[in-house]
């Protein structure tokens, strides 16, 4: 997909700058945002859509720099409308945006949504985080989840994000990546 370069100083000075977007045609499980500009403070990924897996709520898997080594960990807080739950895992191959997509068992035209933040993605001295806030509502069932993720293999800057589902995304599913600029950027 085309990547939008960092805005010049004369450009509009809003903090959110679109970097790239992907719209699923239903034939693929994922996409990669390559050549991510390194001049913003944070990255923000917005997901809206569903997947074809035989579940009611599904997830988006994210690999930093296309690295799927077993060095991702997460802690999450979730609720399904009647109860809360907690979970943690280490040694995963991806960071996970839990419950940001509807699944095969969701009603037609129902979409999940989620926002993931990647703070200080371009520094080279700290491990990289991803914090996601996601939800699915299926008109009678649903799931809302806050997840903290960390990638502990290395401290390299994030230059690409590999985003994939377990099966194919449904048509019209969108992923949009923004740069979040700070003062002077």
């Amino acid at each position: 997909m085309p990547i939008i370069p960092i805005s010049g100083s004369a450009a509009p000075r809003g903090a959110l700058v679109p970097i790239g977007t992907f719209v699923s045609d239903g034939t693929t499980a994922g996409t990669t945002f390559n050549n991510i500009p390194q001049g913003y403070r944070d990255l923000m990924l917005v997901v809206n859509g569903g997947a074809t897996r035989a579940v009611a709520n599904d997830h988006m898997l994210i690999a930093f720099n296309t690295n799927t080594s077993s060095n991702y960990s997460y802690t999450y807080l979730t609720g399904d409308g009647s109860a809360t739950a907690a979970s943690r895992s280490s040694g995963g191959a991806f960071a996970v945006m839990f419950n940001c997509l509807t699944g095969l068992y969701s009603p037609a035209n129902f979409m999940g949504s989620g926002v993931a933040h990647f703070p200080n993605y371009s520094n080279t001295t700290t491990y990289k985080n991803m914090i996601s806030k996601c939800g699915v509502d299926n008109n009678g069932s649903g799931q809302t989840t806050l997840t903290t993720n960390t990638f502990t293999l290395n401290t390299v800057a994030i230059t690409n994000l590999y985003c994939i589902t377990y099966t194919n995304m449904i048509p019209t599913t969108t992923l949009t990546l923004y740069g979040v600029r700070s003062v002077g950027q």
């Binding site: 960990s73 802690t75 999450y76 907690a86 985080n129 903290t148 960390t150």
Partner: peptide
């Protein structure tokens, strides 16, 4: 406030 941290074996998620 939302967020907190994950430290690969420990961590917290908070609203």
């Amino acid at each position: 406030v939302s967020g907190s941290y994950d430290a690969n074996g420990s961590g917290v998620a908070v609203y």
